[in-house]
Amino acid sequence: MPSKFKEALNSGKFVVTSEIGPPKGTNLEKMYHHIDLLKDKVDALNVTDHQSSVMRFPSIGGCLAIKERGGEPILQMTCRDRNRLALQAELLFAYTKEVRNVLCLTGDAVPVGDHKEAKGVFDLDSVQLLRAIRTLESGKDLGGNDLDGAVEFCAGAIVTPEANPIEPQLIKFEKKVEAGAEFFQTQAVYDLDKFARFMQFARQFPVKVLAGIVLLSSARMAKYMNENVPGIFVPQHLMDELANAPKGTALNKGIEIAGRMIAAIKKEGICDGVHIMAIGREEVVPDILQTAGIS
């Protein structure tokens, strides 16, 4: 069975993805609820892999839940917690469970998470993981041994269009394309002019780019991201807009901003779609889509 997400990417339509954060624990009700809420409203749902290095229910578990409930999952795989044997094994398993999309990430550093004394693995990096997927597709493993049954994935990666300096990011972007990335989901973008300039570069390559949209829930949250999250720059006019929203309506303002940005990206054809990250506020993703005129 081919990837439905890949079909969407190749259809020329404006592609929308969002993401599910698995729980810390075995109570899956909230995750199921979010999956059911979003699975028919987006083209695919990413499942985060111990996001921010915080130990959680596994990404592959979330992907299987999405499959069971009729959605299209994107398996996020970081290189932080597994060596090359474990990464390959999980890709084999994912394939047998009809998970067909993989987003390859380096992974956040261990000390930013909640198991600060753990050993970070990083046996492979994101470029090498992309190549590992293509190697497994050729019927071989990274040791050069034959596989009894290969895999086939729609493989993607991430890019930070507002990183400073930008050139090393662009070089790595090219390396990811050469390694077989078919799609990119970006770090959050807020300055569409800057993003459009990045897209002039990205358009040279035969890949689809989905702009990262992180919901701003308050001026304080935006300020926190500006100060603490590498590669995220919320411009002052958006900070002001959130700060000036009447008390209790900052979240609504954030939904409006996200919807407005998505609508502008779509209207101006800046890139191929968007990846909406609501970070714990998955409930409002349908509202964002409605504000954007997509639903």
């Binding site: 550093a109 000390p111 970070g120 990083f122 994101s126 990011q169 790595k172 590498p230």
Partner: peptide
């Protein structure tokens, strides 16, 4: 590089510093 990356900087690179510690230089920068 905190992660020992071989093919370029990760997304945690921040104005020439590392996401792990704002005092540490980003090796890839």
């Amino acid at each position: 590089c905190h992660k020992g990356l071989l093919n370029g900087p990760c997304g945690g690179t921040n104005n020439g510093k590392c996401e792990v510690d704002k005092e540490k230089d980003c090796a890839w920068t």
